[in-house]
Design a protein around this nucleic acid. Structure first.
Lengths: 194, 194
DNA sequence: CCAAGTGGCTAATTACTATTAGCCGCGACT
DNA sequence: AGTCGCGGCTAATAGTAATTAGCCACTTGG
């Protein structure tokens, strides 16, 4: 039953993710999560430690996944323009493909208690710094024309957050379309020359 | 005492706004709001009808203000490019100047119950449609070069949401800097020609 | 067949929350 | 001076939530 047991724990995490997205962390009850997997609220404690742990796992694994995707993307080239494009594409792709995780990750930081809160905020700050670096590198190389590197990197990051809000797997815009367009938007925002 | 009474109700709304932003609607208690204005939770009911009403007023007045700012902005010119720029500037300026309202307005729709929820969502849909129109007008006039009008308008709107998250009145970026830059970003996103 | 662990359940615990009820001081107007 | 209501307060109401306790069925390995 090892397989079935771990599947049950996974189902619970998936159900919690969906409910946290739809109702919000505070408004979701353990009974809700239990009902979503066909058991009663208290029975959840045979599989997970607490509601808070469910949230913390979602948040940290999301940030780690995002950072990993970013590092993989920038490792594929040295060119500042291409680096930024690929980073933006990876950013948006992650937010489209893991929209529930990203949605919860962005909105429920308030629901996290220490030490998880601090850890997640640190990961996020690191991620933002990576983007700022990319933009600054392009400016230093004379390839970008933009007033404020900070504003531009915020803007690119914000686009991903937005995607996690409105993207739908069954919508008329495919993941690739959205990813490609946003890579283009990112380059336009920083004012790529030539 | 008419002046003093209305001031007290206003203080309560302001305190609720700040707390809803910092803690979230669900996590904010009436006792919290009371403490912020120096009274006990139950005493709030001498001034406001309910916690839900506090949220509803914030949300509807925010959306109405945003829509009004948009209409005023687009009424200043007929040129598609300038219209989009001014709409984007108004959008961002509103989100910077009323960042708490905009923040709560974007994140706490889930906490609203009907009929307020439907009303706010309708206002928001109307607002989004206005932007899509502007982008489509520019495309039809052959002034913009962008793959998807929907994507571009979402992107411009998302930038405003982002501003409400990170903007600080006492930060190093002034409101005008942010507004001006985002007007530029909007035009770059839609690929303004010449 | 049995012993034990796994994973469910209900009931209890503890704590909190929105809101209402009912009381009271105090300033304003008669 | 008296009364009226505004705007506080505390206590009560009623409901909900996370988590724990204790019980039981069922599988499973001996």
């Amino acid at each position: 039953m090892a397989r079935s047991a771990s599947s049950r724990a996974g189902d619970i995490r998936a159900a919690a993710l969906e409910l946290f997205t739809r109702l919000g962390y505070e408004a979701t009850t353990m009974a809700d999560i239990g009902a979503a997997v066909g058991i009663r609220g208290p029975s959840l404690y045979k599989h997970v430690a607490s509601k808070q742990e469910l949230l913390a796992q979602i948040m940290t694994s999301t940030m780690e996944g995002l950072l990993a995707a970013h590092l993989a993307a920038v490792a594929t080239t040295e060119d500042p323009t291409e680096r930024l494009r690929r980073a933006a594409e990876a950013h948006v792709r992650y937010h489209a493909r893991h929209r529930l995780e990203a949605f919860v990750g962005n909105r429920e930081i308030r629901g996290l208690v220490e030490p998880h809160r601090g850890e997640v905020l640190a990961l996020r700050a690191e991620y933002e710094a990576c983007f700022r670096e990319l933009v600054n590198a392009g400016i230093s190389a004379g390839r970008f024309g933009v007033g404020s590197a900070r504003l531009a990197s915020y803007a690119i990051l914000d686009l991903g957050m937005g995607v996690a809000v409105w993207f739908r797997e069954d919508g008329e815009l495919t993941e690739d379309t959205v990813v490609w367009q946003h890579g283009e938007f990112a380059l336009r925002i920083v004012g790529v020359k030539a």
